[in-house]
């Protein structure tokens, strides 16, 4: 057994242990805390799988922002939680479900063990065509050129997701400010971090986007870091979230997809196909789309966490009670 395998085994055991904790923990809050740690361990797994781009996304989005979302929800739902636990299915049913789920896991494990050995792969095709895009990072190349339709649809689908979240507000709250990120009750510790850290976060985020053309990184990772800084400022109470009726913010939300669609449609004329780039301008066009998408994805991620608009009077009452 090599030392790398020992490390991998320990990593897998830790991941499975935390997954067990997330499933079995009594309180949702504890499970959500476990989920953050689980995401950080998965980040190491992704590095071990030679997927540094995915590892960054997992750390920023899968662990960080999702964890924040779940922690906030667990805190809000804690009053309703006690009654839930009594409604667990009976022991017999749980055993039956456990056996069936184990069978499913065993089936998937068999699939993993029986995967064909010279694995089918499109890595060579990507490597052959990457120079035409002018990019150095094959993952960015796949996202922006090879499978650009996927990326386009994904960036578009974020906007309806945000509309879905907003539409869960009450009639009288419409047009107000999102209400999930009520400022932390104390005024001392968090604002200092929220005043000092964001400039450095902005530099790191922009660097991730810019370096993502050639090195690990990219717009989603960078946007997640930028959104985290924005959320930090909002949670610390230094800035309020923008009103959902704010026109500038709405424009920023859609500028990325619009940019993508516009340049893609221009490709029909210039390069013969939707989302095709004329070869001489491939890299600058891709960079323009990346910049637009970074702005939009940052705004969407931050606003998804900020939640639906809350009625203004309630917001004020809460803030007065907590101050």
């Amino acid at each position: 057994m090599t030392s790398a395998l020992v490390v991998d085994t320990a990593l897998v055991l830790l991941v499975l242990g935390l997954a067990l904790w997330i499933t079995a923990a009594r309180a949702a809050y504890g499970a959500a805390v476990g989920f953050v740690a689980y995401g950080l361990l998965l980040t190491i797994v992704w590095v071990r799988l030679a997927a540094v781009d995915v590892a960054m996304t997992e750390a920023a989005l899968g662990s960080g922002l999702t964890g924040l979302l779940l922690l906030g929800a667990a805190a809000r739902l804690a009053p309703y939680e006690a009654a839930e636990y009594q409604r667990r299915p009976g022991l017999g049913l749980r055993v039956l479900v456990g056996v069936l789920c184990a069978a499913l896991a065993a089936g998937l494990a068999a699939v993993v063990l029986l995967l064909p050995d010279p694995a089918p792969s499109q890595a060579l095709a990507v490597a052959a065509h990457l120079p035409a895009t002018g990019l150095g990072n094959p993952v960015t190349g796949v996202l922006m050129a090879y499978r650009a339709v996927d990326t386009l649809l994904e960036s578009v689908v974020l906007v309806p997701a945000l509309i879905g979240v907003w539409s869960l507000s009450t009639e009288m709250a419409w047009g107000g400010r999102p209400g999930f990120l009520t400022p932390w009750r104390s005024g001392s510790a968090l604002p200092l971090l929220a005043r000092v850290l964001p400039p450095f976060g902005i530099l790191v985020g922009i660097h991730l986007v810019w370096a993502g053309a050639d090195d690990p990184g990219g717009k989603f990772q960078g946007a997640a870091v930028l959104a985290a800084m924005w959320i930090l400022v909002m949670v610390a109470g230094l800035r309020e979230p923008p009103r959902v009726s704010d026109r500038l913010m709405r424009f920023l939300l859609v500028i990325g997809p619009l940019c993508f669609i516009g340049i893609g449609a221009a490709g029909i004329r210039l390069a013969g196909a939707f989302l095709a780039y004329p070869e001489a301008y491939a890299k600058p066009l891709i960079l323009a789309i990346e910049v637009g998408l970074t702005i939009s994805v940052t705004a969407v991620l931050g606003l998804l966490l900020a939640g639906p608009p809350a009625p203004e009077p309630q917001y004020q009452r809460q803030s007065r009670r907590r101050s």
């Binding site: 932390w184 104390s186 001392s188 510790a189 850290l197």
Partner: peptide
């Protein structure tokens, strides 16, 4: 250091 000091105080509060 900055994040450790902040989080420590938040937990303490």
């Amino acid at each position: 250091l900055l994040s450790g000091a902040t989080v420590g105080q938040l937990l303490a509060e």
